[in-house]
């Protein structure tokens, strides 16, 4: 992009120049004509459904018969029912795996390599690490279902190193199914986070590290006072992407465990689907959908706030 705009030099025009103002009615009309198609698509298939979601959430409705106004009862159910609370808790537990593992490992790699991954090695790394981003999540789910199966690679490895007692059907295990699902998500997001952080660290001025070393900084200090602050934006991006992926997960869980055993791996996305289309509790499903949306918003907002580039 920079090449394309190269003919316009960054001139020294004072920044006080006010934006052009041409507010004639005709100009406004033109603007609306350009925006209208997108606005209509967005309104028709996002805003209206969202409004309907909210409306349904106030109803008791099986999706076929007559709906009855139900007030906020559905919301009370979502926030008090033990199962639903556990389901919401599951989503937040997934955040731990989806977010901490990729960001932690990514940071480790980035601060160790601290430089460009140039040449063939760099290309190969990028290509391979991005593969999980390119394939459908469903495929990742199937691949890992096989990895975690009782005769799968995970157990095979454990047996090979003499930990046969640890071998189990991971995705059917009440304790281990959720962490296993978390590992799948971590695997999908690991490459993206690593590449983002590795790229981000190359933008930190190398002389900062040299200066710090002259000041007697230990590697830990360098990491704490230079790398982390320098990567604040990239870390924010990683956390945002991975947290949304965890809270709104559906594909992986649907394929690998279908929420089981019991409801140990059920997440809100799956529960919405099940409530609305299997149990015909459209009102409750919609209330859960609204709660999920709000949860994503209030989880992301502070991340955005802390990691925004403060100028």
């Amino acid at each position: 992009m920079s090449e394309n705009t190269a003919s316009v030099p960054g001139n020294q025009r004072p920044p006080v120049r006010l934006p052009p103002s041409r507010g004639s009615r005709k100009a406004t009309m033109t603007a609306w004509l350009f925006i209208a198609p997108a606005a209509i698509a967005y309104a028709g298939f996002v805003l209206v459904p969202l409004g309907m979601s909210f409306y349904y959430s106030l109803l008791r409705w099986d999706g076929i018969g007559k709906a009855r106004f139900h007030g906020l009862t559905n919301y009370v159910t979502v926030l008090t029912d033990a199962d639903l609370l556990q389901i919401i808790g599951n989503a937040f537990q997934l955040v731990l795996y989806f977010t901490l593992i990729p960001v932690g490992l990514g940071l480790a790699v980035a601060s160790a390599i601290r430089g460009h991954m140039a040449g063939r090695f760099g290309t190969a790394t990028r290509t391979i690490l991005f593969l999980p981003q390119v394939i459908p999540l469903v495929a990742a789910g199937i691949a890992w279902s096989w990895m975690f199966a009782s005769t799968g690679l995970v157990n095979q490895t454990l047996k090979a190193v003499g930990l046969s007692s640890w071998a189990r059907g991971w995705l059917g295990d009440f304790t281990w199914a959720l962490p296993a699902v978390g590992i799948i998500g971590a695997w999908v997001l690991l490459g993206l986070c690593t590449m983002l952080l590795v790229t981000g660290i190359t933008k930190i001025d190398a002389s900062l590290y040299e200066a710090a070393r002259l000041d007697g900084a230990r590697p830990w200090h360098e990491f704490r006072y230079i790398t982390l602050p320098g990567l604040r934006q990239e870390i924010g991006v990683c956390i945002t992407v991975t947290v949304i992926a965890a809270l709104a997960s559906f594909d992986i869980v649907y394929i690998s465990t279908q929420g089981g055993p019991g409801i140990t791996t059920t997440v809100p996305g799956l529960e919405i689907y099940r409530l609305a289309f299997a149990h015909r509790q459209v009102g409750l499903a919609s209330a859960l959908a609204i709660v999920l949306m709000v949860l994503v918003l209030i989880t992301i907002a502070p991340v955005q706030w802390f990691t925004r580039d403060k100028k």
Binding site: N4, T5, S7, V8, P9, N11, R13
Partner: peptide, 9 residues
């Protein structure tokens, strides 16, 4: 224009 504003493409 001061920036010339040539069409880069």
């Amino acid at each position: 224009f001061q920036s010339y504003a040539l069409y880069p493409h």
